[in-house]
Design a protein around this nucleic acid. Structure first.
Lengths: 210, 210
DNA sequence: GGAGTCAGTGAACAGTCGTACGCTGAGTTC
DNA sequence: GAACTCAGCGTACGACTGTTCACTGACTCC
């Protein structure tokens, strides 16, 4: 008994394989250009099908872009879950968080490059899709914060602000890992940890100075 | 006695005017697309000169992009200077800072859109130019912090980290102002102020928890 | 005032692009 | 096993791209 899928004969299987090939070829091409500059022909050429075959899977390049967002943020979601699952004092969690970001970025550089580049890119549907997904992450992060320790007396708005800062920081740090070559990773990581520490310290004394 | 300029007859004047027209027409076009998708022909068409005339001013679209960065970050530099010139307690400065950002973004939306979009865009020379300019701002900000009040015992590295956070926060806030319609401005501003407050509070207790 | 400079012109080039259309042939359904 | 579906193909089209080249004519310099 399959889950959401219907018939799924070899027919559908082959179609899905081609679709996946289109997505990953696009992702590869997007390491060197932005979505708005990506041509439908370039994608099909990379996969080895005729240009018109593209339309069997997507109506548009923006449409493919939105599909890429979903794929990409699946992997990001895994990262968030891993980070939230961390335990220990805040110093340990900060250390592990930055490690996890570095690891995920190194494992899926194309995903993160795409995310960072298109977050403020010129393709509206993709921007919207990314914003929506990051919004979900912020909520998830915020819920985790609310359940946590010392944040009992925080207002909902302040909690959300803090959650947003963590998510933003994550994306920023990912972008920095992408831009620094293999040397400088440690410097970038140290800065990222310090930023997290600063925010954490600020959080500890947030209610003192209200 | 003119400053850096040489002859500057009506000849040069007209050339400069055309160059300026190319830059501002590009900036306008770039509100709806990214630099990598901007065509040389589209730019010249918008200005009303022949496509080939473009080469009298720039060798490339990336080349024009770098020129745009300089123009754009001149205006940003004005904003930074205004922010650093603010006096008063930290709460007043936070309020004024966010006001200044909102005001500058509203006054030069195309400049900021370009900056935010191309910061992680696909045109390398432009990315590099933006990174270099933001680096300068970080240094400026860091120097101002070092001269200030309670940061006597901070290490250089920590000061730089803090300066970087302020610059990053500025860019992020600008991006958010750009994306929220005219309603929601106040909500965005409030969040931006709270983030600044959190960082400030963190800074106040930074040395306590070392 | 004559020689030289050079911002902008206009036609032509080889490519690339997205998309419309009809087709094929393997997989599906009864 | 006959009727049907549909992923992928091939051709063709018009529109648009960046860049070349020789050109003009107003300005600059001596």
């Amino acid at each position: 008994m399959s889950h959401t899928s219907g018939p799924a004969g070899p027919r559908q299987a082959q179609k899905l394989r081609t679709r996946q090939a289109l997505l990953s070829a696009s992702l590869e091409l997007l390491e060197q250009q932005s979505l708005s500059g990506l041509g439908l022909r370039a994608v099909t050429r990379a996969v080895g099908i005729a240009p018109t075959g593209f339309y069997r899977h997507f109506s548009d390049i923006p449409d493919l872009g939105v599909a890429l967002v979903e794929e990409t943020l699946d992997s990001l979601h895994g990262m968030i879950a891993a980070i939230l699952a961390e335990t220990g004092d805040s110093e340990q969690r900060i250390e592990r968080t930055v490690e996890l970001i570095a690891h995920h970025v190194a494992a899926h550089p194309a995903h993160f490059r795409f995310l960072v580049r298109e977050r403020y890119g010129s393709v509206e549907p993709v921007r919207k899709a990314i914003a929506a997904q990051l919004e979900l992450f912020t909520e998830e992060m915020t819920r985790a914060l609310a359940a946590d320790e010392a944040a009992r007396d925080w207002s909902d708005e302040d909690l959300r602000m803090l959650g947003g800062m963590y998510v933003d920081h994550m994306v920023t740090t990912a972008a920095e890992f992408l831009e620094t070559g293999s040397d400088g990773i440690e410097r970038t990581a140290r800065t990222a940890r310090n930023r997290l520490r600063l925010v954490t310290v600020g959080g500890h004394h947030w209610l003192d100075e209200r």
